[in-house]
Each structure stands twice: as C-alpha cells, then as structure tokens.
Nucleic acid binder design. Sequence first.
DNA 1: CTGTTAGCGCTTTCAA
DNA 2: TTGAAAGCGCTAACAG
Lengths: 340, 340
Amino acid sequence: MTKNVTIKDVAQFAKVSIATVSRVINQHASVNPEIKEKVLKAIEELNYYPNNAARSLKIQNTRTIAFLVSDISDYFFTTIGKGIEDVIRNLKYNIMFCSTGNSGEIELEYLKLLLEKKVDGIILNTTGKNNEYISELSHRVPIVLSNRRINHPNFKGDFVDFDNFGGIFELTSHLISLGHRDIGVVNGPLFLSTFKERYEGFVSAMKTAGIEVSEQYPFQYIGNTYSSSQDGYEGAKFLMEADVRPTAIVLMNSEIAFGALRYFYEKQIKIPDDVSIVSFGDMFNRDLLYIRPTISYTNLKGIGKKLGELMIERIENNDIVNREIRFTPRIQYGNSTRPL
Amino acid sequence: MTKNVTIKDVAQFAKVSIATVSRVINQHASVNPEIKEKVLKAIEELNYYPNNAARSLKIQNTRTIAFLVSDISDYFFTTIGKGIEDVIRNLKYNIMFCSTGNSGEIELEYLKLLLEKKVDGIILNTTGKNNEYISELSHRVPIVLSNRRINHPNFKGDFVDFDNFGGIFELTSHLISLGHRDIGVVNGPLFLSTFKERYEGFVSAMKTAGIEVSEQYPFQYIGNTYSSSQDGYEGAKFLMEADVRPTAIVLMNSEIAFGALRYFYEKQIKIPDDVSIVSFGDMFNRDLLYIRPTISYTNLKGIGKKLGELMIERIENNDIVNREIRFTPRIQYGNSTRPL
DNA sequence: CTGTTAGCGCTTTCAA
DNA sequence: TTGAAAGCGCTAACAG
C-alpha cells in the first residue's frame, strides 16, 4: 500500500465536499453535471483510486469470493475457476484462488485467513478433514462445495459435482461389454465423497455382471498418498506386478490416469494389448498423449458456472435450502481398450 | 462479509480494553499472561476473526501481492505461482492471481482494481500493450516483471526471465549440428520481449552457420492470434503446406509446441521422420506425449522464487536500481529430432 | 502493563 | 443538489 491520494485530496482539489466526490464515484443520486465534471477531472489529475479497504469497512462487504482447492495448478480446477469467473465477473465480484495441497491444516489456516479477509463467500473443494469446523462455519459465511461433499447434518450450503456413480458405472460396463471380468481399479481415499461414489459405481456395475467386489477382491488399490498422480503410479504397479493381473483397469481420475500411464510407459506395458484402461474425467492435452484413454468427459467450465451461480444466490440469502447439482458425464472413446 | 463479532465484543467479553485485545492479537508488547489467557478464551468463545479491511486501512498495507498473467490456467504460470507462494507465504504475504487473456483492456482494468485493492506489489506478465501506463504506475507501486520486459526509459522495477536468446541459440545449433539447414520457426508476436529475444537467438545461430535469416526467409511464421496454441497449429500448417518444406522446426514456446503437435498428429506427419522439432520450455506431462520434443528445460519454480524475492525487496524499498535476472535453460533431449 | 483516544478513507444519513 | 458529521474495526501513540 503505497502512499496514496485520498478522497479528501480530490475534494480539496475540486473544491467540493468528500460526500460529493463519493457520490460521483458511486454514481449515486444526482450530482450537478458541472461539478461532476470538475470532480472527474480532479480524480484524473491526481491519479486517485478509491481505497477498497476503507470502502469494505464501511459497506461491510468485499465483493470477493474465495475458491479454495487442493491444487491450484491443476487443470481441473483452473478450468472450473474460469467458469466461476465468467459468472461473477459481470457482477463485479472478484475471485481469490488458494490451494490446500490436500492438507487439513493448510485448509484450516486458509479458512481463517478468508474469515479475516471477510470474503463474501467460499467455493470449497475440501480436504475432507475439517468437516465439523466447516459445518459450523457454513452458518456464518456462505459456502458452496465443489466436487467433494461434506456429510454432516449441520452443514449448510450447496454442492456441485459430476454423477460419479453413473460415470464410473458406464465406464465399467463398457469394459464388461468388451468381455473383461478381471477388472482392476485404482482409486483415491474413500473418505472423499467423489472417490467413494465412484467406487460404488464400480461395485454396482460389477455386481450387475455377476461379479462380487468385496474387501477380498484382489484387483483393487486404494491410494493414500494424497497425490493422485503418485497413487496412480503405485496402483498400476501394484496391479500389474501381482501374481494374477487384471485384463482391464478403471482409473478414478485424470491424475491417477497420468500416474498409471507413466508406469505403463516406463515398464513398456502395452495399452490396450497388455491391459485395457478407462479413466474418469477429461485429461489435459489428451489428444496428444501416447495413448488416448477412453474417458468420461466432463464439462468443467459448466461446473464452474454453476458453482458461481449458486454462490451468488447464497450470498444474497444463506438461508435457502441445501442444493445438490449433478452433471452427467458423457463417455468419450479413445484407443485404450480392446475386446477380450 | 457476514455480520461479525468485532474487537469491541471481545474486549467487553474479556472485560479489558480493545487496546489490550489488539495487543494479544498482534503479539505486541507484553501483556499479563492471565489477561492474555482471558482474551484468548474470549476470542475462541466468540469466534472472533480480526477484520482485515480495518487493519489494512489503519496500517496502510495489505500484505497482498498480485500475480497478473496472461492465462492463469497455464501450467507455466501456475508453477511459477507456486514458487512465488513458497517465498512469500512465510512472510505472511498472500498472492492474488488474475489473468488478462492477453487483452490490453483487461490488463488495464485489473491494474486499476489492484490499485483500489491497494496490493503491496504486482508481479506482472504484461500484455505489452500498456507500457506507458505501467511505467508511470511503477513509480507508485512496486512492480516485478515476469518473462516479458517493458522497454521504457521510465519503467522502475525488476525483470526475471530465461536466457531466451541463449536457449534458442542452443536448440537451433543442435538442429544445425544434425545437418539441418532449412530450419523453420514458429513464433509469437515480436513486440513481446520473450519472442523477440528468442527470434534473435534463432537468427544468430543460423548466421553462425552461414545462413541469413531476413524478412525474406521463407521458413518462418509469426503468430498473431494471441493464442500461442493456435499460432502453433497455424504455423506448423503454414510451413508444412508450403511448396518447399523445412526439414526441422523451432517452436518458440510450449503452447506453440502443443498446437504444432496437434497439427502433425492430425495430418499424420511423422516426427522426426518427416520433420524434426525442438521447443523452448518445459511441457506439461511431456513424458506422456506421443512424441517427446527436445526442449530447453526451464526451472519454473525457481523463477517464481526469484520473482517473490525481488518483489519483497522492492516492497521494502522501491528506490533500488532496476534489476534483471536471467535463468539459463538446459537442453533436454527427446525423440523429436533426427540427423539429416 | 493497561486504557483512552485519534484517525486510517470511505459511505450515508440528516440538514440545509 | 450539496455539505457536515458519525462511524465502520482496527492500531498506536500517549498517559497513567
């Protein structure tokens, strides 16, 4: 914050009161055109920019929305972020990006910071480790959840996600229809709703084909490193180095898919000759990869727009009923599967 | 900004003055441990979070640094952003991301917003279209330039970039050493310093090999769509559909490379059999692409850290002399070139 | 060690 | 249509 010209300086320069200056800045009420002109000239002349902090302090809102996610350099979130921006920008809101790196502590730290910044609302892709706190918080600041639900009776807010169950059900069914039965799965931690729902979609599709997936099911790997990409690598390794290999693998998100792809590439495991794969969610530059996985395509920008809309509504009134929006993914075929 | 408990409420609750509360919040001076305890309890009890706007208004700084770039969903910038964050986070600074989409107007708009937000400093990847304004601005708010220089005598601030000239010189020389002489180039607009410097590196390397590159040089394409990716596609198309094709192509950044790769893939042009390529800068998931381009590898996080450091120094004193830091890229071989 | 108070820059009532 | 003045929540002299 550099030394600054204030509204007072402008008023003095234009020989009017600060109230008048304020009025022309905010295009409030009626101001004599001549005086208005004078003020505008003074503003220009002095290089005046209203102090946002002072304004926020007075009017009790910041017109800022926070977008707190696990990884702000992830294509997934930056694209969603663009969608949010599309919506809120016209309404003169600003977005503030923060990333938790999936750490519960950092999430908490940021949440507190946002509270101090008095953001008008928080769009949150939670780590899943502060459900209690966030539920309590949700009564004091509007919250909309992005892609990870908080299952807590006290939580107040909206939730936007894909139809995880349906997307994975479809993907798995596709593999089954190709004749696969020993289908492996690489997933992230199940306490996150996305992974849980996807897992359930997998189990259900398998069940439909008469295959029981229980804890004893051999072809599954549940990651726990909090780096999906590493989980993907480890998971692929685990499945492919076992005594009995699956003939196909379901990868539960794009980061996991990238990790798995890296493993396959290193070990020269041929896709789909050695093993077929499918993955949930769009992949950055998928058309340029050495294998184009068959995926559930998801409209990320659309998700972002919806998040933005719900947020705005909730800022206006946080007492509306909790809402849940699901986007249906569409399957997009690549060259990563083969019939058995 | 939800209705909020203020320092007054805390003071009342703890039966002390607001000054005392302020002291414990800021860990200023010495406060009687018992009283401190009481205040802390009140803060906890009331769910108090200091109002940042009020604080900023008083202390005249926001501890916020803006990072204004062309595209915030670009891996290049998000990675640099992480580097910046690494440095400033410990110092209790926050970062605010904004993207211009390479539009001069949006850049201007954001600059004004940042002035109103009274950010303590701006790390800027400029569109190159507001040099006059930014130079003037640089005397009122600390500015550090990321990867695009502003050539204006009045500009005050630092500049961090790669050794563009050297990186491209090396890459081009590599192609020449492989026997190539008809070497094409796909570049972005030359009014941006990065592209200009890279172009000069190319011209110089060619000259060293006795090849004159002038305006008449046939194997060059200078993009102008402001989407590097599209420039890359168009450029590759232009070069490959000409009567005489180059035997190798220098791609001036990773987005251009992605675009070109897309064209080659679509047209089934074989790399490096039909044409060799090299590219400046790291590419996201490069090891998973259908071709691994030979690149100049650049340490993006290192750039970010340096940007952060310079910014902090300049916030403390904006009257230091302009500094320029160059990072030397290292060549990283892929499978995208062949000897002629 | 603690409290009182002025004032940061702005918006908004209220009066003129 | 304009101005005076209170007050948003906080920090930092200053006094005690």
